[in-house]
């Protein structure tokens, strides 16, 4: 698959409309690489003018800042901002809510001002504009899907509607968990928990959340965050339900439904 980099396009004197910020999980995590590919396929199919940074992209610094390492966060942020400003980037789309939050809310204070969109909102726009066409009889028609709110989209940035509208476009049977939207339960990986073992307790947070998701009877747990993806996938495996219950990102669902 041809994925344009910003360096190539700039060399050709072109400047794409939007930068696709892939993120570390999207670049390295085997499971989330499939989400990156799905989203890139959609971008290619729709004909969005985009590019990625490729090897010029670095961690936004989100986990460092949340673990308390402000120096490391700001080192990362400043060097990323130098790259982004160097290319004159104006608009960024990313499939990671943590990258999204950091780029959108925390880079402006350090000199990085961009229009930042999460891929859930980007997909919703493409659907609304009719650029993604979903047939009424797509693979997910009538299927029970539950959406797990990512804290960094939901409470952190008040994005509750866009991911749900994407799922509604699938003509699926969207069922909500008991704790959803503003009271959605965290998957357990935010705040740099992804990178350490949980503190001592009675239960793992992702198990608690997975039980809630399974209780809806959904056959697909839709997620929109790489950390949620890992936690919910592990949770479903722990409950030995991986044969009947899929954990999928919004981009994967759209790519599948449109036959990409």
């Amino acid at each position: 698959m041809n994925i344009p980099t910003l360096a190539e396009l700039t060399a050709k004197g072109q400047s794409p409309d939007v930068l696709f910020w892939v993120g570390c999980a999207g670049s390295f995590d085997d499971r989330y690489k499939r989400v990156t590919l799905a989203f890139a396929k959609i971008l290619n199919a729709v004909g969005v003018s985009y590019a990625v940074l490729g090897t010029e992209e670095n961690c936004t610094g989100d986990p460092a800042r949340r673990a308390g390492n402000e120096f490391l966060f700001q080192m990362q942020a400043m060097s990323n901002i130098q790259v982004l400003n160097g290319y004159g980037v104006k608009k960024i789309v990313t499939a990671c809510p943590h990258c999204f939050n950091t780029l959108k809310n925390e880079y402006p204070e350090l000199g990085g001002n961009y229009e930042v969109i999460h891929h859930s909102a980007f997909l919703q726009q493409l659907i609304n504009e009719g650029k993604i066409k979903l047939s009424v009889d797509n693979a997910f028609k009538g299927q029970k899907i539950t959406y797990h709110d990512s804290c960094y989209l939901g409470r952190a940035n008040n994005i509750y509607k866009a991911p749900r509208e994407v799922l509604e476009a699938l003509n699926a049977d969207l069922v909500e968990m008991k704790r959803c939207r503003t009271t959605g339960l965290c998957c357990g990986a935010g705040g740099a928990q992804m990178f350490k073992d949980a503190e001592k307790g009675k239960k793992e947070i992702n198990i608690e959340r997975t039980e809630e998701a399974l209780a809806t009877g959904a056959t697909t747990v839709a997620v929109a965050c790489p950390f949620c993806m890992t936690m919910m996938t592990d949770g479903v495996k722990n409950k030995e339900r991986e044969a009947e219950v899929n954990v999928k990102d919004l981009a994967e669902l759209i790519a599948e439904a449109t036959g990409l």
Binding site: R155, A156, C186, G188, G190, G191, A192
Partner: peptide
Amino acid sequence: NACTSCNA
């Protein structure tokens, strides 16, 4: 160390 910064 147990906080997930989930803002709940």
